[in-house]
Amino acid sequence: MMSKIVRTITNILYSSILIFGFYIIMHGHLTPGGGFQGGAVVASGIALVLIAYGYDTAKDWIKKSNLSILESIGGLAFIGVAFLGIGTTFFYNFLANSGTLFGNPTVIGINPGDLNTAGVLPLMSWAVGLKVLAGLGSIILLMAYGIKKGDEK
């Protein structure tokens, strides 16, 4: 548990950091960033809450079991999307330019871009993003738990 100044700033900044991280994951195929970078930003928001409030208060906000479920979902979705294109090759982009989900044809050249393009890349970006945010968040949470356990002895 840190001082009141740190806790007030955390209350203001926490939601903004989470929204920025999910924005980076969502727009990975249009702007710089992607799954790994966005997941790291979201995990840094989790670390901010954990540092500012201490393990005992923050563990109710961040459930460890939810994080492990998220990590499993991310890994399975990544492999599953990769296997769905096995008709041609592993990691084949079967949704691009198909007209269905994320399948709009893109404009060639320099343009601001359309969110509904790029085929399987946004799906993979979300899968990797969930995996990275759950993995790094659970690393920080486990370290805080281990240090608290060492204090009690």
Partner: peptide, 26 residues
Amino acid sequence: APDVAIAEAGIGAALTTAIFILAIKG
């Protein structure tokens, strides 16, 4: 290289500092 810049700012500046501060507190 904005991709590398975002990854470095997220992991190098935020997460590593958080882990070090946790270790110093412990």
